[in-house]
Write a protein that binds this DNA or RNA. Structure first.
Ligand SMILES: [Mn+2]
Ligand SMILES: [Mn+2]
Ligand SMILES: [Zn+2]
Ligand SMILES: [Zn+2]
Lengths: 125, 125
DNA sequence: CTCACTAATGCAACAATGTTGCAATAATAA
DNA sequence: TTATTATTGCAACATTGTTGCATTAGTGAG
C-alpha cells in the first residue's frame, strides 16, 4: 500500500517537526483549527507510527502523545527513554535518560512506557 | 466524613488482598458477577486510594490498575517502583525495582508511572 | 432496640479518547 | 487525461471513567 502525500499529513508532520514537545491529537486539532477532521488526525498519527516516523507514548493523563523518532535507525527503533509531562504547562518531552529495569527471572520485555510528571524548569514553583 | 463498612467494599478489598496481581475495574466487575454496580466499583477503588489503602497505576492499555499499598507508611506513601503487564495473561505486577530517573536541571518530579510490558515467566514463548 | 443522620449504592446520563464503516474526494501513475 | 485506490469526512460506535440524584442501608446516640 503506497502512501500519498496529503495536506493533512504535511501539516501534522510540520507541527511535529517544529514542536519541541510531543503532541497529542487534541493539541494538533486545536492548532489546525478545523483544517483536518478529528478522525483524520488519529489516522495520520497511527500511520506515522506504523511507518516508523513517530513513536506513541501513552500518558497517565489518559491521552497518547506522539513524538518524532530522532535517534532511531530505519529498521531498529528504540524508545526506551523516560518521558516528562509538566502538570502546569502540559508540555511533554522525551528525556535523554534511558530506562533500565531488571525484570524477575523468566520475564521478557517487549515495551516500556515510563513517565515522570511534575514541574518543568519554566513552570517551577 | 466517616467511612462505613459495606459488602461491596469488603468484597473488593478481599479480592485485592488475595490477588497476586493488581486489578482493574473490569476484572473486579467480572469476578463480582453483578454483586456491585460498575460505578460503585470505581467509587470504592477511588476511596481506597484516597485513604491510602491502594495506589493507582495507569497502564498503557488505557486502564487503571489498583494495587494494595504494602510497604507504605501511614503518612508517607512511595509508589516509585516499576510495574509489569503480561501482554498474554494480562497479569499486572508491582516490581521490586525502584525507578531512578534523573531530570533536566530545574525540573521537579511529583509522580512517576513506569511500565514494562512483555511476557511473564508463565506465558513465556 | 429504635431512630435519625448521612455515607454508600444503583441507575441514567454524560464526558473524553479512540476506532470503524462507508461513501465521497483527490493523489498518483499510466 | 483517465483509472486506480489511498485518504478523507462524517456518523456511529466502543471503552474507560465521572457526575447527579433518588434510594438504601451502616452507624452511633438515646
Ligand atoms: Mn523510533
Ligand atoms: Mn502507598
Ligand atoms: Zn511546564
Ligand atoms: Zn503472563
Amino acid at each position: 500500500m503506497k502512501r500519498r502525500n496529503t495536506p493533512a499529513q504535511q501539516a501534522i508532520l510540520a507541527m511535529l517537526k517544529s514542536s519541541p514537545s510531543a503532541l497529542s491529537q487534541d493539541m494538533i486539532e486545536q492548532q489546525l483549527k478545523g483544517e483536518a477532521d478529528r478522525v483524520t488526525i488519529y489516522r495520520v498519527l497511527n500511520r506515522f507510527c506504523e511507518d516508523g516516523l513517530t513513536h506513541r507514548i501513552v500518558s497517565d493523563d489518559g491521552k497518547s502523545y506522539f513524538a518524532l523518532c530522532k535517534k532511531c535507525e530505519k529498521h531498529h527503533h528504540a524508545h526506551d527513554h523516560f518521558h516528562f509531562r509538566c502538570v502546569h504547562c502540559q508540555k511533554v518531552e522525551c528525556l535523554e535518560e534511558e530506562v533500565k529495569a531488571s525484570l524477575p527471572a523468566g520475564y521478557s520485555a517487549l515495551n516500556v512506557n515510563c513517565w515522570v510528571s511534575g514541574y518543568c524548569a519554566e513552570c517551577r514553583v
